[in-house]
Computed example of a mutant assay.
Amino acid sequence: MNPKSTASQYTPVRITTIKAERTVTFPVYIHFKEQYLEYIKPSTAIDKEKYKKLRKQKITKFYILSEDEVKYQDFLDSFLEEALSNPNTSIEEKSEIVTGQAETAIDKMGADPGNENNFNMTRKAAKNLQKLIFENPDALKNLFGTGEEYNPIIQHSINVAVLTIKFATKKKLPEEEVDYLSTAALMHDVGLLENDTLMETFMVPKNEFTPQQKKEYYEHTKGIIPLLSEKPYINQNIIEYIQSHEENLQGLGPHKLKKLTPSQEILSMINSYDKIVTARKLTPKDAIKTMMIDELGNYSLKMLNDFQAFLKEEGLV
C-alpha cells in the first residue's frame, strides 16, 4: 500500500474477471478500512482457497492502478478468448467471466462515459455476450439475472442486453443491428449510475412517479447524448437506441416519439420488462403477465405476444 495514494489512482474490476491460479502482470488490490492493500503481486496468482474465501465473503471487486488498465484489458482479452474457445470450460464459468467483463465495463462507463477505452471495453463485452449466446443454446438461462452484482442498474443493463440479443435475433433483425443493440443495451442507463437520486427513482414503478420524478428521471435519456454524439468512435445507431429506450408507441416517452423502428421497440419493451423484474422484484412469469396488461398499447400486441412466447421457449417463465 502506498500511504500517499488516493482513490482516483485506482479503478474497480470485478473479481470474476481475475480467476484463481491465473498469473497477473500487474498488482491487484482490495479496499479495506479506507485503504487499498496489495493482495496479488505482479507475476503471481491468487490460490483457490483464498479466492473461494473472498467469494464466500461476497467480495465482488478487486482494484487495479489506473495506469495498469491496458495491462488488465490485455489480461482479460486473453483470458476470455481462451475460456470462450475452450470446450472444457463450463457454460456457468463462461457466463460468469463474460458477465464480470460486462459489469466492469458498465461501471466504468457510468464513471466516465466519454472515455474511449471504457466504450471499447463495453463493445467487447457486448460482442462476447453475443458469442456466448449464439454458440450455446442454454447460455441465456445462465446470464439472465444470475450475477452477483450489487448494483441493480448494472444487473438490469446486463439482463436487457442478453434478452435483447436473443430476442432480436429470433425476430430476424440484421446482425449489425443486433450488434449495435447489444452495446446500447449495456449502456442505456449509464446516465443513472452517478446520481443517487435517480438510482433510487429507478426502483419506483413508473406509474407511481411524481411529475418531478418523471421529469428528472427521463433526463438520463437526454443529458448523456451530447457527450456521446461528440465521439467519432460511437456509431450513431447506438446513440439513437440509447436515446429512445424509454419511448413507446403512444408517445409518452421523454422525446414523445410515436413511431418506433423494430429495434427501438424491442429495446424499449425489454427495458420496461426487466425494470419490473429487477426493480419491482417480480418473477419473470409475473412480470410478463403485468406487461401484457399494463403495456398493451405502449407496444404492439404482436411484439408482446412474440416476447411472451420467446420467454416460454427459453424456459424463463
Rank of each mutant, 00 (worst) to 15 (best):
A20M: 02
L129T: 08
I133Y: 06
N120E: 11
T283Q: 06
P254F: 11
A161R: 00
Q212A: 12
S229E: 13
K170H: 13
K52T: 08
T283I: 04
F310Q: 02
R55Q: 15
P254I: 06
D107N: 09
M269L: 15
L76P: 00
L140K: 08
D74C: 07
A45I: 05
Y51R: 11
I224Q: 02
T197K: 14
E93L: 05
P232V: 06
L198S: 03
E148K: 15
F79D: 12
K231V: 10
T278A: 02
R22H: 13
K206Y: 15
L282C: 08
E247L: 04
L163N: 03
I15A: 00
I239L: 01
K215W: 08
A45Q: 11
N195V: 00
Y241K: 07
A184N: 02
T6F: 11
K312Q: 14
S85L: 07
E69M: 12
E38A: 12
M187R: 00
S43V: 13
K215Q: 15
D286W: 05
D286S: 09
D47F: 07
L80E: 08
T221V: 12
E82A: 08
Q243M: 11
R123V: 14
L282Y: 15
M292R: 15
L163D: 06
I288G: 05
N115Y: 01
G251F: 02
S43Q: 15
T183E: 11
V277E: 04
V98T: 04
L249H: 09
K56A: 14
K52M: 12
K4S: 15
N2K: 07
P284N: 06
M291E: 09
R22L: 11
I234T: 03
F79H: 15
L260H: 04
I276Y: 10
F75V: 02
D112S: 11
N115D: 10
A102L: 03
T6N: 14
N271Q: 13
T210N: 06
G100K: 00
E216L: 12
M187A: 04
T16R: 10
T201N: 10
E176C: 05
F134R: 14
K275N: 14
F75P: 04
Y233R: 06
N151K: 12
L192C: 01
K19L: 14
F79T: 12
K108V: 02
L65G: 01
Q250K: 15
R280V: 09
K52C: 13
S95L: 00
N117H: 12
P205L: 00
K302C: 10
A111E: 14
K222Y: 03
T146M: 03
I276K: 08
Y51H: 12
E38S: 07
P27L: 05
Y273T: 07
H255N: 11
V178M: 05
V317Q: 09
Q155I: 02
K289V: 14
T99V: 12
G114E: 07
I133G: 04
L80R: 01
